[in-house]
């Protein structure tokens, strides 16, 4: 019997597979498709203090082996998420959730953390300091060591839940930002968010996306994500949730070998809504083939 369970900051996960924030909503589009309880956890759609409509259309551009999105954190706001979305999701998913939150100022991050701290279904707080699609927030925090450290410190003061900082890849040295978050008290790190990208319609001489630029994700960014997870794993001691183009059980194990304790699956859900189910089904067989008895043994085996 292969053991595919893993652990994040003392929280047991039946398997390392977690749908990534922004590709799984609050579960509504998926719970009729398969039993959500097969998942390791779920990272909910990025939640802000106030309701947000997000950016103008078009928000999506296809790329070879991926897509660019510029949704702009559309969500119903923290009160609706806590009082409507999470209770509904909890009827279909009975394990600790990952609450992904995004602020536009330190006080907003603090308010979100305080609010999520009181939600019993939330196991981990995933603090998004890296959304490329909103101005004056998100990535502005995630690209400086000082800002990341400050957000981390302030959020840690108001919650007893494990705090994971979601890092941007759009930086010169992701390891130093990771270290700044760890030194400020982060319990773990999630990486990578999307890479800033752009497509141009050469016939119309216009950007494909209304907001011009957006976040590039999908299998095309997987090698970049593996590299960054590896670099960060070498720089910090706290657990990592690896993500970026993960689409198969093979990708999950590769990400774990690079140093991830758990793995999020993002864009793959959008092109195959059954992707996470398929990956979880494939993992035990692949472990047997690779002579892995306990999946968590491979975390960070690459020196």
């Amino acid at each position: 019997m292969v053991d595919i369970s893993t652990e994040l900051s003392g929280i047991h996960l039946d398997n390392p597979v977690i749908p990534a924030s922004g590709t799984f909503g609050y579960g509504r589009e998926y719970w009729d498709l398969y039993d959500l309880d097969i998942l390791g956890s779920i990272s909910i759609k990025g939640t802000t203090v106030e309701e947000r409509y997000g950016n103008e259309l078009p928000r999506i551009a296809e790329c070879p082996d991926g897509l660019i999105n510029s949704v702009g954190l559309q969500n119903p706001g923290m009160d609706a998420v806590i009082h409507e979305e999470i209770p509904e999701l909890a009827k279909h998913f009975h394990k600790p959730l990952i609450a992904n939150v995004s602020g536009f100022s330190i006080p907003e991050y603090v308010r979100l953390a305080e609010a999520m701290d009181a939600v019993k279904e939330v196991g981990i707080l995933e603090v998004n300091v890296s959304c490329p699609n909103v101005h004056g927030g998100g990535m502005a925090f995630g690209t400086s060591c000082q800002n990341v450290a400050e957000v981390t410190r302030e959020v840690k003061k108001v919650t007893s839940k494990p705090v994971y900082i979601k890092l941007s890849p759009n930086v010169t040295d992701i390891a130093s930002i990771a270290k700044a978050a760890e030194d400020a008290g982060a319990d773990g790190l999630s990486l990578i968010n999307t890479l800033l990208g752009m497509r141009i319609d050469i016939r119309r001489r216009q950007p494909v996306i209304a907001n011009k630029m957006g976040g590039f994700s999908g299998p095309a960014i997987f090698p970049v994500a593996v590299r960054m997870v590896y670099q960060v794993a070498k720089a910090v001691k706290i657990p990592l949730i690896g993500m970026g183009g993960v689409s198969s059980a093979e990708d999950v194990i590769e990400m774990m070998m690079a140093g991830a304790s758990a793995v999020q699956v993002g864009a793959a859900n959008l092109v195959n809504p059954f992707a996470c189910q398929q990956i979880i089904e494939d993992l035990p067989e692949l472990c047997r083939e690779l002579k892995i008895e306990k999946l968590s043994d491979v975390i960070g085996v690459i020196v």
Partner: peptide, 27 residues
């Protein structure tokens, strides 16, 4: 019509304003 990501309501790629609030063209 809209440029869609997933087509089944998960990604919010085709969300549009209506008098009854935001609606996803796909879902």
């Amino acid at each position: 019509e809209a440029r869609m990501g997933c087509g089944f309501g998960a990604c919010m790629g085709c969300s549009t304003r209506t008098k009854d609030g935001y609606k996803r063209i796909c879902k």
